[in-house]
Design a protein around this nucleic acid. Sequence first.
DNA 1: GCGACAG
DNA 2: ATCTTGTCGC
Length: 195
Amino acid sequence: MLRQVAEFPRLDLSKVRFAAGFDSSFINNVQIAVAVVYDVATDAVVDEKVTRREALIPYIPGLLAFRELPGYLKTLSHLNVKPDVLLVDGHGLTHPRAFGIATHLGLVTKTPSIGVAKKPLHGVVDEEGYIIAHGQRLGKVLHHGKRRLYVSIGYGLSLESAVEIVEKLLRGETHLPIPLHYADKLSRKYKKENP
DNA sequence: GCGACAG
DNA sequence: ATCTTGTCGC
């Protein structure tokens, strides 16, 4: 059971202008960590950085942050635009220990964060699509086109805000919200051009 | 012991 | 995540 030791404040969306998406590609154990900052006000990418490093830990379900977080922190340190919110490929509180990679990144950087995963990891989904984990509604399943997205609180915001932000960043043609979509594209492109 | 298991 | 060809469809 999760003891609520953190607040899940509702965010003033008019003050959430820069949304960053974090994603990784791998060449064996070399992580290519990408961050793309999107300006919600002008609908444009305003910053993007790529970083490479050797991942020291293999992928183990539940321990994703141990493998990928260091790369994200390194990439984040190179950004020129400071994000208002962080979108991470993976889960936040809808995690066996209520500490997925989105939560980890948000806590370490003291920045509101959201987990956006393509597959479920923990918890049960109720009739309304909410993901119940640790006795609370910590995430929500969003249906986009024919696919689904598992959105969860990362850190520093309410589930309502997390969902509101993700839905605002969804575009008809893409599966993932734009910042993550661009981050995914950039990481693959970088890998292809820099074997 | 068995099954589940983000990226 | 990554390995991978053709193929169905807008």
